[in-house]
């Protein structure tokens, strides 16, 4: 049995895989798996509180104590200020992503 999961969302808003990533994270979290959601690369565009389904599910996940973070360097490359990130999403350096991956039993890239 796998008990812990990390979902990495690397696709921007509007690409289906990004939605699949947060839906997977939500499903795992709601079913009792230790779950982490990481926004990286183009996926950081999903973490800035745009209107629509993705942000509404992100809010639900955070409200239910989901662990969500976004990579600082990937924000910077796109000119997105860390202050723009949706409230509750942690801004982390890229070096921490490896530690997150080490802490879980499976990493899935969306």
């Amino acid at each position: 049995m796998l008990n812990s999961v990390c979902c990495v969302v690397a696709k921007p808003l509007g690409v289906e895989q990004g939605t699949l990533g947060i839906r997977s994270a939500w499903a795992c979290h709601q079913n009792g798996f230790e779950t982490k959601l990481v926004y990286a690369e183009e996926g950081v565009w999903c973490a800035i509180g745009n209107p629509g389904y993705h942000t509404s599910l992100l809010k639900d996940l955070l409200d239910e104590d989901g662990e969500v973070c976004v990579v600082r360097e990937d924000l910077e490359r796109r000119g997105i200020a860390p202050e723009s990130v949706f409230e509750g999403v942690q801004v982390i350096p890229a070096s921490e992503v490896a530690e997150i991956c080490e802490d879980v039993e499976t990493v899935n890239y969306f």
């Binding site: 049995m1 796998l2 699949l20 997977s24 939500w26 499903a27 795992c28 079913n31």
Partner: peptide
């Protein structure tokens, strides 16, 4: 995803 996929996780060695 909430039912089928998470049930698979419960019986998986590798995902």
């Amino acid at each position: 995803v909430g039912g089928s996929f998470t049930k698979y996780l419960m019986t998986s060695d590798v995902l």
